[in-house]
Design a protein around this nucleic acid. Structure first.
Lengths: 340, 340
DNA sequence: ACTGGCACTCGCTACAGTCGAGTGCCAGTA
DNA sequence: TACTGGCACTCGACTGTAGCGAGTGCCAGT
């Protein structure tokens, strides 16, 4: 594993050149474009070693070298220098996000911004209900046997659900139900609600018992079991940049994966540590995405994390730039949420 | 314009063959696959006429014929025979749509169903607010100077919006505001609300005046001006079927168009008459979509129309089948909405 | 440990030739 | 007049060959 500094510099140069030109890079071009201080022949020897170690490969015998997924990984972990955002980018972020009136609005603006800045596919998860607390529960009578249950979370999310009651419930009883439900649940984290909901049913006065039972079922279903995560997506047109070279010629598997909310959630939703996560090619657990890389991070007001966001692109992407942008956008969104 | 019956039959045969094989169709293959009762030479003469009239064309001199947009138009208008849904399809529709608990749920299921059945890109517009009536307006205090305005429409749509009040408003005043707003607006069509909102401000008691003024601004903005239309999309992966032959090799313009809600709304939202609309290639007003066709129709409970839905695919698509499916799905969705 | 030189590989492009599906036209026939 | 069979022609698709050149691996020399 003798990878001395120069070999690492060569790998870095290969990655940088390949990312920008999208063409296999040869030894001669390398020494011309970078100040390596050695001759092409020497670089070739280094390349041979790098290839043997699996960091680069040759598409065909007489072609230049291309980084492998492993090579990108090493690059991301040890070689990439942080790329600060340009002032223009900072300004773009601020301009784009001010004036958002709504959680929906914030999420939509964010996902478009992210797609535009990175020129890739952007994914933003709405604040997770599992990480939210109940701010208020509203019951709106639709008919004598139907209620609309509206839950407002502290993260700004609003979920609604129709409740089909077992029998007619007079308006006064609805008021009572509303009061009881709010007394018990307001302020509680959603993940803590199941026992509380259970208690609600047990403590309900007899005449409200049937309605409360139905209501509790819906509550549990909507708020906990079905784990209603939502996702916004933008920039799919960016997949077609770079012709058909990226993604080995077929967008199909990528587009299919992007249609599955479950997949997207796995991609950007699992950010336990608050650090940025980079998944490169193979490392991805979905076969459909083995030709793609994902950069994602968590966001939230202050230090807490309420959701994830990220971008998806070809393995040959500008990792330092993308990582910087994703982080910056996540931070801005967090600040925005903190204001509400 | 002498297009006798046989020439029309030839055109129909060309369209049908081309749609199913995706290859230019020649005179010999035509007489073999269809019972036209004449020789290839005769068919060739007919083809020459059809080409002169602009209904078909030759990709290159020594190739078979391909329908033009104009040819598809004639086919759709006069030649296509209605294709009844298979029992399997009917069952799929029913199975897919029962068990929807929510408007969101209904829309999502519908759009996926449509994409799956037609194997194309499906678009479903949420019931338009412009065509809805207010069922209930709820004001939920978030802090002393902030309210969450929640509007529930008779179509099942729920819109929320944060209201930043000019000063602190005590809970009792919020109750009053809620009562006043509902008394005035509940039951009104959204398009009729502007004068009512105006009246609300004028009739408000002095102490509620400032809050009501702010509230009315948000109300108008959210419910009328910003015309909050929503759209669901599915099946973009289907664009890659048929290799790169459809859409002349580049999905880019299509994907770009699909990202613009405004474009989608124009495509499927403008269904004044309750009939199915077919836009073929050129006929589309967006340059990005000149290689695509759109089949759309309105849906709604009973005879009224509250929104549009449709699919987008290559100009060489199975028009009769697609039209039948789109219609059937729209009808089922309408019935589903009528139940609520 | 690095370098210059050299033979070698192999994808890319251009070009020529063949094949065959499909056409347009025309003279012949019912 | 309307259709048909026959025939010459067109032109894209495919195949094979040849030359080019970027890039490599190796080796002897410093």
């Amino acid at each position: 594993m003798g990878l001395d500094d120069r070999k690492l510099a060569v790998l870095r140069a290969i990655v940088e050149d390949y990312v920008s030109t999208q063409e296999p890079v040869g030894s001669k071009a390398l020494v011309e474009r970078h100040q390596l201080g050695v001759s092409p022949a020497t670089v070739r020897n280094d390349m041979a070693v790098l290839e043997e170690e699996g960091y680069i490969r040759q598409p065909h015998t007489s072609a230049g070298r291309v980084p492998t997924d492993r090579g990108y990984r090493l690059f991301v972990d040890r070689l990439s220098r942080v790329k600060p955002l340009s002032p223009a980018e900072r300004r773009a972020i601020e301009r784009f996000l001010v004036g958002a009136v709504d959680l929906d609005d914030v999420v939509h603006r964010t996902v478009r911004l992210l797609a535009q800045l990175t020129r890739q596919v952007a994914v933003v998860q709405y604040p997770s209900l599992a990480r939210s607390s109940v701010r208020h529960l509203e019951l709106v009578p639709i008919s004598t046997t139907r209620l609309m249950l509206v839950m407002i979370a502290d993260t700004g999310r609003v979920e609604q659900r129709l409740v089909e009651l077992p029998g007619p419930v007079p308006p006064d009883d609805v008021t009572d139900l509303r009061r009881l439900v709010n007394e018990k649940l307001a302020g509680a984290r959603l993940s803590d609600t199941p026992p509380l909901v259970q208690a609600l049913v047990e403590e309900a006065p007899p005449e409200l018992r049937p309605a409360m039972t139905t209501l509790s079922t819906v509550l549990l279903e909507t708020l906990v079991e079905r784990h209603e995560e939502r996702i916004a997506l933008a920039g799919t047109a960016n997949l077609t940049r770079g012709g058909l070279l990226d993604f080995q010629g077929s967008l199909r598997p990528i587009l299919e994966a992007l249609e599955e909310e479950v997949v997207l959630l796995k991609l950007i939703g699992e950010t336990e540590p608050s650090t940025t996560r980079v998944l490169i090619g193979d490392e991805n657990e979905f076969d459909n995405l083995r030709a793609a890389s994902v950069v994602s991070t968590g966001y939230g007001p202050g230090a807490t994390i309420v959701g994830g966001l990220g971008v998806l692109g070809p393995t040959r992407m500008d990792y330092p730039g993308t990582i910087a942008t994703v982080r910056a956008v996540a931070r801005y969104v967090g600040e925005l949420l903190a204001q509400n």
